[in-house]
Design a protein around this nucleic acid. Structure first.
Lengths: 196, 196
DNA sequence: TGTACATCAGTGAACGCGCGTTCACTGATGTAC
DNA sequence: TGTACATCAGTGAACGCGCGTTCACTGATGTAC
């Protein structure tokens, strides 16, 4: 049965939303289109009225995942009551939390899907390059000082956070103490001259 | 046809070797058992005389991949002509090279497979926890100073390198300049007070 | 505003395909005598 | 040392299964008059 244009648009958004979450949870090759559409309350056949292929959906889902994870930063950026250092520390603490480690579906797509993206062809790499670049731009805003210095500092912090989260996830089930130690150590050492 | 015990052991090792390389190149769910055994010069049917399942083979392949990537460090550790800082910088430069980025099959399993490992169950997480812990131990040896301080420094450096390599790989095809910038920035900033 | 009809979002069966795993078979190995 | 034979590593066809994608069909939507 046909459906109103508004409903169709809502269904499409629901599919992208479900895909963005499921892909981050299970990996790009760990979820099928049937599971994604079922999660969105539809059947798999209709998927191809909205997306050219599974790969095209995956790209859009990653794009959307980058949107989501950048958005919360806007709040912190504009919280001008806090010092630059305190705001940065808050962002790092949030990123390197046990909650973020244990809920990849709502978390950073770079930490969850970067290895998959590297194998998924140039178009997906494009999506990731844009997402990473935008994350760098956003992160730079909370730093103070000269621009190219800020960019370099941001890259170090971003890389460290991604690596620490990835390692913390891989070791969480096998050695929870090590996983926690990685997160805690990086939280304490990533922000230069953090307040007491 | 039956084969000598020595030949059988060699075939088994060849399968693990092929698996270790192919898994790092294509991901845990990106390679089938047929491709692995073909790469080792055998057919897929005989695999189950050596391994209980594909997952068991994957675990052994990861274990082996961690062995390999730790080994080259032994050379650098014992090169006592160079200063601690210079040796550390050499290790970081090697890890964050374009060559390592472009050849994951012979590279660090943590950077290539950590996200997959986090989804592959507690036994695989165990393998990774041991691999990461052993890498920490090896890396600590090139640092000087108090033990717990060395361990914390090592975790920061290891996390940063893994994250930078993962991001450099994901962005390489879509934005080569960004990929190179990430590697270069981290090479320049990861080792405290690097020599000129 | 009311009617007739073309559109098209969504359904679910069906497709070809590659996957991990099983199994009857082969024949060289290695052992018992 | 020779001989007879049990063992078992490796082969390749076959299995059930889930995948991405296609397609004939349905029926509410939205438009032309």
């Amino acid at each position: 049965m046909k459906v109103s244009k508004a409903q169709a648009a809502q269904n499409r958004a629901g599919i992208v939303e479900a895909a963005a979450r499921l892909y981050r949870e299970k990996g790009l090759s760990g979820v099928g289109v049937a599971e994604i559409t079922r999660d969105a309350g539809l059947t798999h056949g209709g998927l191809y009225r909205h997306f050219e292929s599974k790969d095209a959906l995956a790209r859009e889902a990653c794009l959307r995942a980058f949107e989501w994870t950048i958005t919360p930063l806007d709040g912190l950026e504009q919280d001008s009551d806090a010092s630059s250092t305190a705001r940065l520390q808050a962002m790092v603490d949030s990123y390197l939390s046990a909650s973020h480690r244990d809920h990849p579906g709502e978390g950073c797509p770079a930490a969850a899907l970067a290895a998959d993206a590297a194998r998924a062809g140039p178009e997906m790499s494009d999506v990731f390059a844009q997402g990473v670049e935008r994350n760098i731009q956003r992160f730079m805003r909370v730093l103070e000082g000269e621009s190219s210095e800020k960019r370099a500092q941001t890259m170090v912090i971003l890389s460290s956070m991604v690596g620490a989260l990835v390692l913390a996830r891989a070791t969480a089930a096998g050695n929870p103490a090590l996983s926690e130690e990685i997160l805690q150590t990086l939280r304490e050492r990533l922000v230069p001259s953090a307040p007491a």
